[in-house]
Every structure is written in structure tokens, then in C-alpha cells.
């Protein structure tokens, strides 16, 4: 690993100001950043440790929860309020990584973890995400883990987070502090970007921006489900995952919030799919129509074509369970 200067921020203000210096990176749990630094994929000149800022608490806010940026994934999954009112989030966190990694990984770091595309990890291969304009080795290569929705000619990578998928279905909001102290709020669904022709720009963050928290709105009595399909039973990234947050009223689907992992460059939500479910009584026929909408523009690369029928099945199973029927 290339050496770097290590700094410890003592306030958010100091962190955002210092982060404006070129080649500076925030350090959360380090489980993604240090991995990438060892491989020479990330080469920061300065690491700014944010772990000692006052961002490690979960507090109640307007009936919901405000989750500090440095709250560990394991503590978030085990928090009694999260287990009771946001089980989809506990489940998604517990489906990710390992006990050790969850003890280190932070809320902000998890949102900002980078793709697991094997060509992104191999510095001998061309990758537009690592080197804009270099080309994409995945297209025409090994694509089992790649996107079927929202991809571009420049990049077909997926976002690997489980936590972010649950947060997207829960309509979470990311709280961001800019240099100078101004705070803004961005819906999780708008936080990550599709690759387009700039796959190296992954989120809406601007230079110096620090994530300070993620805010969950008050729960409204929904049924919450997280399902994840992977190549081994544990300690593996999702091939496809789904978070379903569904509220029933008098035998009909009142609201349905669905987010998918493993399909795209960001946690995937589709307002049309949710609209087609709402107001309807649940049936396999309806779930099939929802899957048709979700997958109408799906596009496989060959090796990942299996994700199309798999997504249809995982959607149906999650909706059966969330609407009260058998999975």
C-alpha cells in the first residue's frame, strides 16, 4: 500500500474543509477503502479518519430514526428499534458480509462501497470506472454479477450493498454536510447515479461533502421482507436481492415500496411497478404484470441472462409473503 498522511478530524467542519484538499479520502470502517488501497485502485495522499466525530448514535426523530454516519452495521442491525420497526433493514444488514466486517463497516461507508466488478478490481484490465475513457472489459467478458437494468455502453457494473437496498425501500434520506456547514437531504433513491458515460461518478456527492446521517421516516405498519439469492449460503454478495415494504388495507395493496439489489448500478426502484400494484388485491397474475413492467427494459449480457427469470421469481415470492399469502 502506498503510504499516506493520516489525520483525525475533530469536527464535521474541520472534516469537510480538510477534505477539499486534493487526494483526500474519509476513512470509515476501512473495509472497502483499505482493500482498494492495497490493490492500488485507490491511492489517496491523505486519509481523514471520521470515526471519532460525534456521528455514532441512533436517535429518534419525528417518529423515525436518525442513524449517525459512523454507526456500525452490526450495531444498526441489532438495535431494538430497528429490529422492531425496520426489520427489512436488520435482515439486509445481517445478509451482508461477515460478523467481523459488520463490526467495522459504517453506515456511510456501506452506502459508498464500490462495485465488485472483477475487472474493476484487476488493474491490468481496462475499466472506465477506474480510468475514464479506457473502455469496459466486462462487456463481452465474465458477466455473471453484472447489471440487467440501467446499464450503459460504458459500464455494466452493479452496486453491491444490501443495506442500501433496504434503505431505498424504506424511503430513507441521506443527510450531507458541505464545506462551510450547510446541510442538505437527498432521497436514497436519488443518491446513487446510473453509469451513463461517466461511470466513475457514482453519487451526488460534491468535493468535501461528508455524510453525517441517514434518516428513516416513521414506519406505517408495513410488512417488510428482504430476500437475497447468492452463490453460497452466507458471506457472499447478492446475485439478486429484493426489499419489499408493503401495506395492506382491506385485502388490497395500499402501498408497495420495492427495491432491488444486484440488478443495477444503484438500488433499483421503479415507480411504475409500485403504481401497478397499489389499490389491487394481491394475485399471482398481478405479480406477473408487475414483473413484466419491472423487466420490460431488462437486458442481459449472456452470462447474466438468468437474472431476468430469477428477478421475476424473487419478486413474486417476496410479494406473496408481504401480502399475506404463502411464499
Amino acid at each position: 500500500m502506498k503510504d499516506f498522511a493520516y489525520l483525525r478530524a475533530s469536527s464535521c467542519d474541520e472534516a469537510t474543509t480538510e477534505a477539499l484538499e486534493p487526494a483526500t479520502r474519509f476513512l470509515g470502517g476501512g473495509t472497502n477503502l483499505l482493500d482498494l488501497m492495497k490493490l492500488g485502485i485507490e491511492t489517496p495522499a491523505r486519509l481523514l479518519d471520521v470515526n471519532r466525530l460525534d456521528l455514532g448514535v441512533i436517535e429518534e426523530l419525528d417518529g423515525g430514526l436518525r442513524i449517525g454516519a459512523t454507526v456500525r452495521n452490526s450495531d444498526l442491525a441489532a438495535d431494538p428499534r430497528v429490529r422492531r420497526s425496520y426489520p427489512v433493514l436488520s435482515r439486509a444488514l445481517l445478509a451482508g458480509a461477515s460478523g467481523q466486517l459488520r463490526n467495522m463497516a459504517t453506515t456511510a461507508g456501506n452506502l459508498l462501497q464500490r462495485t465488485r466488478c472483477p475487472y474493476f478490481y484487476d488493474t491490468d484490465m481496462a475499466c472506465n470506472k477506474r480510468t475514464p475513457g479506457a473502455g469496459c472489459s466486462a462487456i463481452g467478458g465474465f458477466t455473471r454479477y453484472h447489471a440487467i437494468l440501467g446499464a450503459s455502453d460504458a459500464c455494466i457494473a452493479t452496486h453491491p450493498s444490501d443495506m442500501a437496498v433496504a434503505m431505498a425501500a424504506l424511503e430513507a434520506v441521506v443527510e450531507i454536510e458541505a464545506p462551510g456547514g450547510a446541510r442538505r437531504h437527498v432521497h436514497l433513491a436519488d443518491f446513487h447515479r446510473l453509469p451513463g458515460d461517466t461511470p466513475h461518478i457514482e453519487t451526488c456527492l460534491e468535493p468535501g461533502d461528508l455524510i453525517t446521517a441517514v434518516i428513516l421516516p416513521a414506519p406505517a405498519g408495513e410488512r417488510q421482507i428482504y430476500r437475497k439469492i447468492r452463490d453460497r449460503a452466507s458471506y457472499a454478495f447478492a446475485l439478486v436481492s429484493v426489499a419489499a415494504v408493503v401495506r395492506m388495507e382491506e385485502g388490497r395493496i395500499a402501498t408497495a415500496r420495492l427495491a432491488f439489489g444486484g440488478l443495477a448500478h444503484k438500488p433499483w426502484r421503479d415507480a411504475e411497478v409500485e403504481a401497478c400494484l397499489e389499490g389491487e388485491p394481491p394475485s399471482d397474475d398481478l405479480f406477473d404484470r408487475a414483473a413484466d413492467r419491472l423487466l420490460q427494459r431488462a437486458w442481459g449480457q449472456g452470462e447474466n441472462d438468468f437474472k431476468i427469470p430469477l428477478t421475476r421469481r424473487i419478486l413474486t415470492a417476496a410479494l406473496r409473503e408481504a401480502t399475506g399469502g404463502m411464499a
Partner: peptide, 22 residues
């Protein structure tokens, strides 16, 4: 690289991967 757990130690009562900890 955080993939095997051979480096696991206990820090302040919590198990972590020491290979991904500075």
C-alpha cells in the same frame, strides 16, 4: 483482504479483521 477471517482479533470486546484495520 477481509475474505477469510484468519486475522480475526478482539478489539474493545468486538471481533474484527485486523488486516483491514490500520
Amino acid at each position: 483482504h477481509g475474505q477469510c477471517g484468519a486475522c480475526t482479533v478482539i478489539v474493545d470486546g468486538r471481533r474484527i479483521n485486523s488486516c483491514l484495520t490500520l
